[in-house]
Design a protein around this nucleic acid. Structure first.
Length: 140
DNA sequence: GCCAACGTTGGC
DNA sequence: GCCAACGTTGGC
């Protein structure tokens, strides 16, 4: 299993919006960046990831699961844009802020820190487990 | 609100 | 194919 991070502006699509979609999940549409799209094409059913609030909040707030592999983005008028569907699993008991991540030497190599504009990015298993621990949340 | 980083576009 | 101009993202 691989691990990922999905970034969203809460004003546009928040964790609460994601939770409201329930087990059926929702298409992660709107990505118009090749790197982010290519990561979504690599995702497998059951891959796990973080839901991150950018802008005002800047924190990892929840755990998600990939529930549909890559398919054309239904909201794109250009066939080059694919996306996956994800569903909310559970919130982090304690959100893990960007400041916390930046201050942690074990997380210094994360794309979140090094490539701040990338909206869909891979997370290593060690990073995934560490952030779950910081968030007082069972990764399973 | 500002600015740095970075992706895209279009002229040459 | 290069590069300047411009737009967008996201942290501060």
């Amino acid at each position: 299993m691989r691990y990922w991070l999905f970034k969203s502006e809460p004003a546009t699509w928040s964790w609460q919006d994601q939770v409201a979609k329930g087990a059926a999940g929702e298409e992660w549409d709107g990505v118009r960046n090749y790197q982010a799209r290519n990561f979504m094409r690599e995702m497998a059913l059951g891959d796990r990831g973080f839901f991150y609030h950018s802008q005002s909040e800047k924190a990892v707030v929840g755990l998600i699961e990939v529930c549909a592999t890559s398919h054309p983005d239904s909201k794109a008028d250009d066939p080059r844009w694919d996306c996956v569907d994800i569903r909310a699993l559970k919130p982090l008991a304690t959100p893990v802020s960007l400041a916390t991540i930046k201050a942690d030497p074990q997380l210094a190599e994360m794309a979140l820190v090094k490539m701040s504009r990338l909206s869909v990015q891979p997370v290593s298993e060690a990073e995934f487990r560490h952030i779950c621990a910081l968030g007082d949340t069972d990764p399973d």
